[in-house]
Write a protein that binds this DNA or RNA. Structure first.
Lengths: 155, 155
DNA sequence: TATTGTTATACTCTATAACTATA
DNA sequence: TATAGTTATAGAGTATAACAATA
């Protein structure tokens, strides 16, 4: 019945996403990071450290998996684990100076890398597209919270 | 310089896609498939069989990895490998009747699952958003072909 | 020589469940 | 009892390089 109404949007969303990921993923790998590691670095770079629970939720990584990802990033000297002052069960993860430096470098390189592509878009398009994406995300996010398929957190 | 111009779009694009993936990925897992397996099933369902090279390119999976993914799908009885009539090095992969049935079931369920979310969008929004995504994808795709980071195919 | 797909290798991600130490 | 993070386990994806069969 109402299927057909948004099927093209869904298909295009997935297709566009896939292309973006191809482009973006190539660059991430060339920097020596996995997508998950990149997600963690980005999450930490945009905030000023967070505990594992919040970090996992933000980067879409379950807690068991996150431990391994953090181990590897710590081994590379990019992140650091510190005791939380309030709760002795909790741990605060934050970027080391090297991690922060990589984050800023990544951001700038990532933008530069995509620059030539996005150059072709005019301001009006960019503005309207951004607004629409934000609206769409809001709806998706609301839906994600309201109707999970199962109780456990999974991608 | 021109960084700031499209930074919000980039951020929103990544954020929106991440949310979409969370929602979509949950459903895929609940069907007993991995994301890669889902990509393969989808690619095969939308066409009528293809060789490994094209399939890998479409699903963003390198050839070495694809062999393993196909093995598992074949083991589940969802896909089948057949000799290519023209080129004896090549192989045609296609869905089995069970695979095809799963594909149609998935498509319909996937749409039904996302229905409540997309219900809230009006026709004008859907149309404009679809057009913009297609335009953006075209640009990204062109960029992906023109300026790869390295020669090897990677996500 | 080049291409198609497989094999081999080593690493990372993944979910899940059991575990510890705190609360 | 509940929560935060780790550990253990088994499976899947990942890139890469070497390989066999065919072109």
């Amino acid at each position: 019945m109402s299927k057909q109404r948004f099927t093209p949007l869904l298909r295009e969303l997935a297709h566009c996403f896939q292309t973006f990921e191809l482009l973006s993923g190539r660059h991430i790998r060339s920097l020596g990071l996995t997508p998950s590691q990149f997600d963690v670095i980005t999450a930490l770079g945009e905030t000023n450290g967070m505990n594992c629970g919040d970090l996992g939720e933000r980067a879409l990584i379950t807690k068991g998996t996150l431990t391994g990802v953090l181990d590897r990033l710590e081994q590379k000297g990019l992140v650091q684990r510190e005791e939380s002052p309030g709760d002795r069960r909790s741990i605060i993860v934050h970027l080391t100076p090297e991690g922060l430096s990589l984050f800023t470098q990544i951001s700038s390189q990532h933008l530069k890398y995509l620059n030539t592509a996005f150059n072709k878009l005019d301001d009006e398009f960019i503005g309207s597209m951004t607004t629409q994406l934000a609206l769409l995300r809001g709806i998706l996010q609301q839906h994600a919270e309201i109707s999970p398929v199962n109780t456990t957190f999974s991608r």
